[in-house]
């Protein structure tokens, strides 16, 4: 059983003296004795290990044989024993109740009536049971989940949450709330008992994705389509932001993937953090092609022909 090295179990070096062994064992046995640790289930196992190690090392003959490698750390099985705690915790434990020592060394069967007072105290009742139970208890916290739109999460909003019991709760969503964040609404959980305070409502926020806005931290990303003419010639276009449309200048000869930064147009400043930015990524779209464009392109020969797939195909 006790396969562990007994020196290690007692925290000793191999050359430890008898006095060191005794002292180490006592220290550990006092700490782990099961009857001194009634609430600790592992104490018994640890105590057995320590005892087995001590049995081996405190016997000079066994210790010498172990040191020479003739025996191993096992074979130190102690007979099963019933520890005191097994009895003391049960009904018969009242035999050694403090202050209940009968004269003459004989313990009569104890009565459990005395316990009644303790329990009555616990529930704020008099021992006579005059009044009903009037212990004040705080109500339970209730957990809810609420899905909010990305724009509400960015700008903040007040939304109604309908509870399973039919009550409706106005939830004030703060600016910049993040996915998975939990909001605590004080006193909106289960009612307290006997005038105790109500519990809280804990609302976990889930943010629904938006059709075109994407959030990264406090920044907002949006992909905006532009026409060939807008991309080549540049000009003012209108783009959406969480706080409304704004006018943006597209530089001449912008390509798909070009990024414009709208400073301060991301998540508004909140909780001591400055406002984020909005990043607008351009995407050139052809749209409906008319004959003029088609004719123009047929006649058009670029001065320097380029192959945009060159890196992929290896062609010239």
């Amino acid at each position: 059983m006790a396969e562990k090295d007994p020196y290690q179990t007692l925290g000793l070096k191999r050359g430890a003296s008898e006095a060191e062994i005794r002292s180490a064992y006592r220290k550990l046995a006092r700490k782990h004795h099961p009857d001194l640790n009634p609430g600790d289930k592992q104490a018994e196992e640890r105590f057995k290990e320590v005892s087995a190690a001590n049995d081996l090392l405190s016997d000079p003959e066994k210790r010498a044989r172990f040191d020479r490698g003739e025996i191993d750390a096992s074979g130190q099985e102690r007979p099963e024993r019933n520890f005191y705690r097994g009895f003391a915790e049960g009904r018969e434990g009242a035999r050694y109740r403090p202050g209940a020592r009968p004269q003459g060394g004989f313990a009569a069967d104890f009565s459990e009536e005395d316990f009644g007072d303790v329990f009555a105290d616990l529930f704020g009742r008099t021992a006579q049971g005059r009044s009903g139970p009037n212990v004040r208890m705080r109500g339970r916290d209730q957990h809810y989940r609420m899905t909010v739109d990305l724009l509400d999460a960015i700008r903040g909003a007040t939304r109604a949450l309908t509870l399973p019991d039919g009550r409706s709760l106005d939830v004030r969503i703060p600016v910049g709330i993040e996915n998975g964040q939990v909001m605590r609404l004080k006193g909106q959980g289960s009612p307290g008992l006997n005038g105790g305070p109500a519990g809280d409502a804990l609302i976990e926020i889930q943010i629904a994705p938006h059709p075109f806005f994407r959030r990264e931290g406090d920044d907002i990303h949006v992909e905006v389509p532009v026409t060939v003419a807008e991309a080549v010639l540049g000009g003012k276009i209108t783009v959406p932001t969480p706080s409304g449309n704004v006018s943006v200048t597209v530089p001449k000869r912008s390509d798909t993937g070009a990024q414009l930064r709208l400073r301060g147009k991301g998540v508004p400043a909140h909780a001591g953090r400055p406002a984020g930015d909005q990043y607008v990524t351009l995407k050139v779209v052809l749209g409906e092609v008319d004959q003029d464009l088609e004719r123009f392109l047929r006649d058009w020969a670029p001065r320097r022909a380029t192959n945009p797939r060159r890196a992929m195909t290896g062609e010239a």
């Binding site: 046995a29 006092r30 009634p38 915790e89 009904r91 050694y96 403090p98 316990f115």
Partner: peptide
């Protein structure tokens, strides 16, 4: 084995008895 002296032992037992009394309750 634990070298608890006879002067201290009554105190240890009294504390243990109180502990077990509390745990029973």
């Amino acid at each position: 084995e634990l070298a608890v002296g006879d002067e201290v032992l009554p105190m240890v037992l009294s504390l243990l008895d109180q502990l077990y009394e509390t745990r029973r309750r």
